[in-house]
Computed example of a mutant assay.
Amino acid sequence: MLNQEQIKAIIPHRDPFLLIDEITDYEVGKYAVGKKFVKMDESYFKGHFPGKPVMPGVLIIESLAQVGAVSLLLMPEFQGKIAFFAGIEKAKFRKSVLPGDTLRLECTLTRVRRQFGVGEAKAYVGEELVCEATISFMVSN
């Protein structure tokens, strides 16, 4: 398991944009599983939406990408680099994510060639699938 300080040593994200709290399982260059503890004091809840706070879907996708980036950026050839989005496909949002929820974030790297790759990502609250997407990325300095 990796805590947030260990995650910061791998990916460049920092508050307020570090959107994962821990990594519970991973295999370098293959997959990672992480958690995001969704708290009411998250800054985006102030405007999304007042009186009915819902985690924005784009931030769920970003959380999934950060989990995948942990596995990717642990690969020796990518250490110290940054993974940027190249695309998002087949994104589906099945249920709202609310304050108090714990997101289980899973990303499996299905293709990594040179500086480009693809990951299959899924987010769950409990056993319920709340989001899924195919994400592609480019790695750069």
Rank of each mutant, 00 (worst) to 15 (best):
V58W: 05
G100W: 10
A91D: 06
G68R: 03
Y44M: 12
K90C: 10
V54I: 15
G51F: 10
G34Y: 00
K36P: 10
P56F: 03
A91Y: 03
V67C: 14
L72P: 04
L72E: 07
G51C: 11
M55P: 04
F37G: 00
V54F: 04
G87P: 07
L59G: 03
I82N: 05
S43H: 14
I61L: 15
G34T: 01
V97A: 05
K36A: 12
V97E: 03
I82S: 04
G47K: 12
F85R: 06
K39D: 05
L98M: 14
A91G: 08
G68V: 04
R94Q: 08
A69E: 03
I60H: 03
F93I: 07
F45Q: 04
G34C: 02
F49T: 06
L74A: 05
L59R: 04
I82Y: 11
P53D: 03
E89W: 00
I60F: 08
A83N: 08
Q79L: 12
G80D: 06
V58I: 14
L74W: 09
L64Q: 02
L64D: 05
L98E: 13
D41Q: 11
K46W: 01
I60M: 09
V58E: 10
L59K: 03
A91M: 13
G51W: 06
M40C: 09
M75S: 02
E77V: 02
K35M: 03
A86G: 14
G68E: 01
V54S: 05
M75H: 01
V54K: 01
P53A: 10
E77D: 14
D41S: 12
K39P: 00
L59I: 03
P50V: 13
K92F: 00
V70D: 02
F84N: 06
V54C: 09
H48Y: 02
I82W: 04
L74I: 01
Y44F: 15
I88P: 11
M40T: 14
E42T: 04
G51E: 11
K46F: 09
M55L: 15
G87Q: 13
S71A: 15
S71Y: 03
A65G: 12
V97Q: 01
L64Y: 01
F49P: 05
L74V: 01
F84T: 05
H48E: 02
K81I: 01
F85E: 13
I61G: 08
G100H: 11
I61K: 06
L72D: 08
L73G: 08
G80Q: 04
S96C: 13
P99A: 08
V54Y: 00
R94T: 04
S96N: 15
K95Q: 15
E62A: 10
K81R: 14
K36F: 10
I88T: 13
E62M: 03
F37S: 09
